[in-house]
């Protein structure tokens, strides 16, 4: 018995495309054996397939485009390393004589710097979301600076300014998360890595941590989870 009372138009495509079960294929073949119109149709579709395959263009540029993308990703990272490395060497001598500041005093300074910047509406001296532009700007103002991290994960890079902590100028990079500004102070330091543990001090959430020869202070009116997330983002982009 022929299971197709009519021509199996849909199944013919699925048959051509190898998408039928063995049983389905046998049914279509049974119909084809007795239906010249469907055989012709199948022949036409096969001719169309050969034609389309012969018209398939080469796309060798596609691979070069892929390589350009991955190369640029790597180059961006290498530049960051090269810069960081040079500064770290130059800074090594300095760091040796800088007394690691006691947190009690510096936390006050950090919070004050943040509050002053907000109160005077001067959160950033350079408004930019481009880490390379910020890095250039900082490098002309500070003997040593830490390349800033691009934003991401809800944190937008807003710009930078230079503050004074413990009588030394330091780079302050400003991020925004939702409606909150976060100041990130960073400087080269010999202290060993320290996990970020944000604490709430009055109006502000502050967080001190160290990672790979850089000491960070962060201050914001955002919550502790936000500061942890930003620290994780900065770490991730430096590894």
């Amino acid at each position: 018995m022929n299971p197709f009372d009519e021509h199996p138009h849909g199944a013919l495509h699925a048959y051509l495309d190898g998408e039928l079960s063995l049983e389905g294929s046998l049914e279509v073949e049974g119909h084809l054996a007795s239906c010249s119109s469907c055989r012709r149709e199948l022949e036409t579709f096969r001719a169309l397939r050969r034609l389309l395959q012969s018209a398939k263009s080469d796309a060798p540029e596609a691979e070069s485009a892929l390589m350009r993308v991955t190369r640029s990703v790597r180059a961006r990272r290498r530049r960051t390393f090269a810069f960081g490395g040079a500064v770290a060497l130059a800074a090594a001598a300095l760091v040796a004589v800088v007394v690691v500041p006691r947190s009690g005093a510096i936390v006050q300074e950090v919070a004050t710097a943040h509050a002053r910047a907000l109160d005077t509406g001067r959160s950033v001296e350079l408004a930019s979301s481009d880490p390379a532009a910020i890095e250039r700007w900082l490098s002309t103002r500070l003997p040593e600076s830490v390349p800033p991290t691009a934003g991401g994960d809800g944190f937008a890079l807003r710009g930078a300014r230079v503050d004074s902590l413990e009588g030394r100028p330091v780079a302050t990079v400003v991020y925004q998360v939702r409606s909150h500004l976060v100041d990130v102070f960073a400087w080269r330091s010999a202290e060993k890595d320290m996990e970020p543990r944000p604490t709430v001090a009055g109006r502000w959430t502050v967080c001190r941590w160290s990672h790979r020869g850089v000491a960070y202070w962060m201050v914001s009116d955002a919550g502790t989870e936000d500061l942890k997330a930003l620290a994780a983002l900065i770490k991730e982009q430096r590894t």
Binding site: H7, H9, S37, C38, R40, E41, E43, T44, R46, A47, L48, R50, L51
Partner: peptide, 13 residues
């Protein structure tokens, strides 16, 4: 589609 005449396959070729 109408049942294809075999000429179509040749035209496609």
């Amino acid at each position: 589609p109408d049942p294809a005449p075999s000429a179509e396959a040749q035209l496609l070729e």
